[in-house]
Structures are given as structure tokens and as C-alpha cells.
Write a protein that binds this DNA or RNA. Structure first.
Lengths: 195, 195
DNA sequence: CCGTTCCGAGAACAGATGTTACGGTAACGT
DNA sequence: ACGTTACCGTAACATCTGTTCTCGGAACGG
């Protein structure tokens, strides 16, 4: 056998580089060379780990999903009750701190790219469906007597609200301050009787 | 004098082409050549009308704002009362019909581009501020006894909701059907006591 | 009818990007 | 030791992009 490379370590190194480029330069600057430069290697290694740029993009999309899921689950577990869990999971999507803003910027980039990329669109649909399923479970737990239709509508509205606040906050941090985003979420939950 | 070209008509033609390319092919395919091909001319004309790509983008962004404003004003004037006007203006942002979906896709593209383009970001801020001012006026008319802070928070939440629903509907029309989007908006307005 | 003057097509160019091909090298089995 | 084989740095290649430049030509004033 030839020399054995530490594949997991390299993939993590490249994943981290992909994420860093995505956060600092945006999706359109996510080039093979930019990733290689950030990872401190050459394009040869990158093209050796990924067959083409599309695979690199899909990997980055998966990375976003994985990080988001971890953040959500940590918040959900740490919550005291169903209401707190719902609020915490929703607040995770907001662009209120540095990490959340980065998430929102990256998510926005992938969403815009999904318009002309069927694979990215499919990935978006899968992950967004999972997000809404999680919200539906939390809403049902917080309001056990709601009929299914009401839960579904509330989930759609709440998901749209936090994602909208996130992208608006990503593009205009001053116009959509952390306080304003939290207040909007709290007011909406209260209005729905979920506060 | 040499032959006189109809500059405004050409600028509108090119802006429309920018819009069409953005809606059909996405942000990353928005090139000078794609715009020229869609407009049925050569890159020479494009570069003759606009000093560079940036100016072309800004003009198209302005066109999007102008069209959105006209749609909103028409709906606001046609509404019977303050509640109907608020609902109509908000519903205009949704991606419920073909035109609305195109608007949402283009708006999403410009928003994503604004992340790494300060001029587009500034344009977004200006237009979004105007949108929120309009919403604040309508909410105040629909609920005259609300204090200013409550109006501001409701406007932030409502704006985030419809824009979020629009971009989610743009990327996943089946997951966010016209019915689902309208139901989410109606439920939110009802929850806020603005239905 | 002609010169002037702008218009716009289209080639040309430099830079960036995805992708492929080649070659050195280091580890592993024998 | 040594051949084999995967690993990966390097560079070349083709393509695409924004931008510049040139030149033919059409419209208008005289």
C-alpha cells in the first residue's frame, strides 16, 4: 500500500476552509483555489478529495445543515419546557450574533444558488422539511389541543418569520438589530398564544 | 447629429433582460453576455449604455423597486379599508402567482448579491426602509391606539414573515404553496389582531 | 449629395476558474 | 532493499468573464 493519508482530518480541514471562505467571501467566491489557499494546500488536494466543484458545494451545504442541526438540538435539549424549546429553536435561526449572522449569510447564499441548481434545491427542500417537522413537533407539544391544520399554518408562519428576519438581518444588521429580531419573534409567539 | 438612440427604452430593455436572466438562470449566470443575448443585442450595446456591470445591476435593482412600489400602491388604493390595505400590501410580497414568484426570485438574487456588494446593500436598505415605513403607516391606520413600539415590532415581524415566505416559496413552490402562504399571512394578521 | 458625428457590432485582451494531466515522492509489502 | 502504488504538488489547458478598442455605418445638417 502507498502512503495512507488521514482522510477524516483532511476532510475536516477542507470543510473548515470551505466554511471560512463561505463566511468571509460569500458563495460566489467559493472557488477551488480560494478553498485550497485557506486550507493551506494546493488545488490538487481539493480536487483529489472532491471530484468537482459541485461536490464541494453539496458538501458545504451538508455542512451547513449539520451545524444548524447541532445548534438546534443543543438548544432544544437545554430548554426547560416546550415553550422555551420552541422559542430557543426559532431564535437559533435569527441573525443575532456573529455566528448566527454567518449562518444566515451562508444560508442565503445557498438559497439563491438553489434557484438555478436542482441539486442544491433538493437539498434545501430536504433540510427545510426537517426544520418544519421539528417545529411542528415543538408546536404540538406547546399547544397539544391544536388541530393539525392550525399547527401546520403556525409552523409555516413561524418558519417564514425567523428565516425572513435572518436574511433581512444578514443584509441589514443595523436595520434588523438583535433586539428587533428577538422582539419580533417574542411578539409573534405571544400573538399566537405560544409565548 | 448622428442617429439618435432611444436611451430610456434601451435601458429598460436591458434592465428587463437583467431581470429575466436573474429569474431564469440565477445570480451566478448573470453575465454581460447573457444579458445581451436575452436582450437580443451584443455586449457592445450593453457596455455602451452602462459604464460597467455594476451600473447595470444597480439600474436593474432600481427597476425592481419601481415595479414593486407600483404593485403595492395599486393594491393599497384599491383596498376598502385599512385592514384590507395592510393585507393586500403584505400579500403583494408573497410568491403566490407567476409574477410574484419571479419578483421573489429576483429579490432573493439581489439580496444575496448585496452581501458582498456594498452598493446593492445600500439600495436594499433604502428600499426595505421604505417598505417598512409603508407598513408602519398601514398598521397605525389599522390599529390607531397602538403605541409606536408595538407598531414597530409588528412591522418587523410582518415584513420578515412575508419576505421569508416569499423566498421560501421561490425556492420550494410545492412546499410553500399559494394556499399555505396566504393561510400563514392570514393567521399571523389574525393573531396580531390586525385581521 | 456629402461630411460629420454618434451608435453599436464584434473582435481582442487580461484575468480568473474548473478541470485534466504529469511527475516526484513517500509509504508499504515482499 | 526495492518495486509498486496511492498521494498530491504543479502546471498546463480550455473556457468564461468583464472590459477595451476599433471600425463600419447610419442619420442628420449643410
Amino acid at each position: 500500500m502507498p502512503r495512507t493519508a488521514d482522510r477524516p482530518a483532511q476532510e475536516q480541514l477542507l470543510s473548515r476552509a470551505v466554511w471560512q471562505v463561505l463566511a468571509e467571501q460569500g458563495l460566489d467566491r467559493l472557488t477551488i483555489r480560494a478553498v485550497a489557499a485557506t486550507a493551506g494546500c494546493t488545488t490538487g488536494l481539493v480536487m483529489h478529495r472532491f471530484p468537482n466543484r459541485q461536490a464541494l458545494l453539496l458538501h458545504a451545504r451538508q455542512l451547513l445543515h449539520e451545524r444548524t442541526r447541532q445548534r438546534m438540538e443543543a438548544r432544544e435539549v437545554a430548554a426547560a419546557d416546550a415553550h422555551a424549546a420552541l422559542r430557543a429553536v426559532l431564535a437559533q435561526s435569527l441573525a443575532v450574533d456573529s455566528d448566527g449572522r454567518t449562518h444566515a449569510v451562508v444560508w442565503l447564499g445557498f438559497l439563491a444558488a438553489a434557484v438555478s441548481d436542482e441539486e442544491l434545491a433538493a437539498a434545501h427542500r430536504v433540510h427545510n422539511r426537517a426544520f418544519r417537522d421539528r417545529l411542528a413537533r415543538l408546536v404540538s407539544a406547546a399547544a397539544p389541543d391544536w388541530p393539525r391544520a392550525r399547527v401546520t399554518t403556525a409552523v409555516t408562519a413561524l418558519a417564514a418569520m425567523v428565516e425572513g428576519a435572518a436574511v433581512l438581518g444578514a443584509a441589514d444588521p443595523e436595520g434588523y438589530s438583535a433586539h428587533a429580531q428577538h422582539a419580533a419573534l417574542a411578539a409573534t409567539l405571544t400573538a399566537y398564544g405560544l409565548g
